[in-house]
Deep mutational scan, measured.
Amino acid sequence: MIVFVRFNSSHGFPVEVDSDTSIFQLKEVVAKRQGVPADQLRVIFAGKELRNDWTVQNCDLDQQSIVHIVQRPWRKGQEMNATGGDDPRNAAGGCEREPQSLTRVDLSSSVLPGDSVGLAVILHTDSRKDSPPAGSPAGRSIYNSFYVYCKGPCQRVQPGKLRVQCSTCRQATLTLTQGPSCWDDVLIPNRMSGECQSPHCPGTSAEFFFKCGAHPTSDKETSVALHLIATNSRNITCITCTDVRSPVLVFQCNSRHVICLDCFHLYCVTRLNDRQFVHDPQLGYSLPCVAGCPNSLIKELHHFRILGEEQYNRYQQYGAEECVLQMGGVLCPRPGCGAGLLPEPDQRKVTCEGGNGLGCGFAFCRECKEAYHEGECSAVFEASGTTTQAYRVDERAAEQARWEAASKETIKKTTKPCPRCHVPVEKNGGCMHMKCPQPQCRLEWCWNCGCEWNRVCMGDHWFDV
């Protein structure tokens, strides 16, 4: 396979590697080409510095992935760790964990309700045991953590790749202090920090972006993250068709209702045909949960890209028209025109101005929308079919299609509260000796007794199943 190397943020060049090629071997190839010592090179990928003893497969490097290699003399205490030698983080029983690669970060837990604080980093599902597709590297999971809308060759929703760059020099040479644990960490600028490894760059702020994971991409090709779309790892039924499908869209209502993408497309087109989208002054033209839940309008309007190009163009047109109407304007009634106009409040005669090729020149009556006339309008008909009709959803289907309910059931079956801080902690095999993952707590306690870890627990039921 081919990976592209950008040395000291210059133009990239291809390097041929195998899945079992080590990072140090990659350094040696680059060092020979650039005429520099291999031990002064640092390989940066997806916000993480890659260790010498890791392989291309370990690092989730795919065909035509772009890695950054910078030349920086080692500072005291760094060289041993980078070589894969006596790194205290690798000691058996050590409590410190390697910062998780962005290629394996899962933010789907952050669609849980606000009262489930902490689960994004504490609760991990076991539903990723799908067998890898044919042709994928051994052991590589097909679980997708992110979804994007690819405006490039795909023109559809695709699995996405999370990447990070330095907000100062805009190069992907920043190593994160810690990985993101929720969508806010990724979507809110300057929320996460790190250290830029580019020479002479003092940058410390992280800037995240997404790429389409279905095809090789260049540095400049980015895609918009659709953070309401998630892999259906909890096997929730769709609120409309009641099938279990994946991926799904999880509405931001209190129940976190789930809808499959085909039904979401149908829901949007139906509402669009009836012009029953909601115009929100802050958000724009949007839709609420299909069950009509309060405070559930979709905030990231790129989710409506699921409509496809033709329907999305209609959505944008109707949204612009609705904006004009909300501002007190009118639409030209001549067939084939429909231009938005903003006449004076007491102006009865409205002319669709033909300047700049935008208007048709038609003069019409503001009251009856017919060709302009003197005197009273002959008839004014009330528009028919403008009443909002509820999208029919079966109550039982709505009850079963809740992301929140599956989460709470998982928590109930696989977790116990920490005796000190009461945060839910998952036990997935292993011994009875637990350690609270909350940095402010870190209590060592017994899963069996529910009390602080002691010699009695150690001698009596340390390794009970």
Rank of each mutant, 00 (worst) to 15 (best):
V248T: 03
Q78N: 12
L261D: 01
G340D: 04
R140A: 11
C166Y: 00
G93K: 10
R72P: 05
Q276E: 11
D346L: 09
K413A: 14
Q440K: 15
T386C: 13
D185S: 02
P216G: 10
V67M: 04
G328Y: 03
Q34A: 08
E367S: 07
Y147V: 02
T388Q: 12
L176T: 06
G430Y: 15
H265I: 07
S22M: 06
E79K: 09
V248G: 00
P333F: 02
M432K: 04
S407E: 12
I306L: 10
R170V: 04
N356C: 08
C253H: 01
G179T: 05
S65V: 03
S9G: 04
S9K: 03
R366G: 07
A172C: 10
L50N: 00
C337M: 03
P343K: 07
C253P: 00
T173E: 12
L228P: 00
V148H: 01
C169E: 01
Q71S: 07
F251E: 00
Q440Y: 15
P159F: 08
C352R: 02
Q57Y: 06
P199D: 12
A397W: 09
P113G: 12
N295H: 07
S145M: 06
S255Y: 09
K48Y: 03
G338K: 04
V70Q: 03
L342P: 04
H461D: 01
T21K: 04
S10L: 03
L119D: 15
I2T: 14
Y372L: 05
Q252R: 08
E221N: 07
S246Y: 03
S167C: 06
L176V: 09
G114T: 13
H200E: 15
L283C: 09
H257C: 02
C421W: 00
L174F: 15
C95E: 15
W462H: 15
C441S: 01
A390I: 12
R89Q: 14
H11T: 07
C169N: 01
F4H: 10
A397M: 11
S141Y: 07
G284Y: 03
R305E: 13
G357V: 14
G84P: 13
E367R: 12
S109M: 05
R420S: 15
R275H: 04
Q100G: 13
I229Y: 02
M80E: 14
A398T: 10
G357A: 12
K408Y: 09
M434S: 06
T173R: 06
C323I: 14
V248A: 03
A91W: 09
Q252W: 03
Y143R: 11
P113L: 08
N273Y: 05
R156T: 15
I66G: 03
N8T: 01
H302S: 14
K32H: 14
Q252A: 11
E367G: 07
M80D: 14
Q64N: 14
A225C: 06
A92M: 13
F7I: 03
V278I: 12
S218T: 13
C182V: 07
E382A: 13
G135V: 12
F45D: 01
Q438F: 06
P189M: 05
R334G: 06
R334L: 07
N356T: 15
Q40G: 10
R128A: 13
H68F: 02
D219K: 08
D115K: 08
Y147W: 13
